[in-house]
């Protein structure tokens, strides 16, 4: 199971900062879309490195492939 964390900071002036962690790719975008709909308008959005990482399953496969290649050399 994947752990999805969301940190929401509502400032004194009402501005909202949302930090979505653990969700990658499409799942991350879905959270962003949902929270935007709930709260209001997007002022800024930054995609961090994890967003561009493949889904967990694909990453494990990649790691396994790399391990096989290492073993064969």
């Amino acid at each position: 199971m994947a752990q999805h964390d969301v940190e929401i900071s509502i400032t004194k002036t009402g501005e909202v900062k949302v930090h979505i962690e653990g969700a990658k790719g499409k799942a991350c975008l879905e959270y962003a879309k949902w929270l935007t709909k709930v709260i209001g308008k997007v002022k800024d959005q930054q995609m961090t490195r994890e967003y561009y990482e493949p889904e967990t399953k694909a990453r494990i496969n990649l790691q396994q492939n790399l391990k096989v290649e290492d073993d064969s050399t």
Binding site: E15, V18, I20, A23, C28, Y31, G40, K43
Partner: peptide, 8 residues
């Protein structure tokens, strides 16, 4: 980290 949103 994944995504940071600033919302009004």
């Amino acid at each position: 980290m994944s995504t940071v949103l600033i919302l009004a």
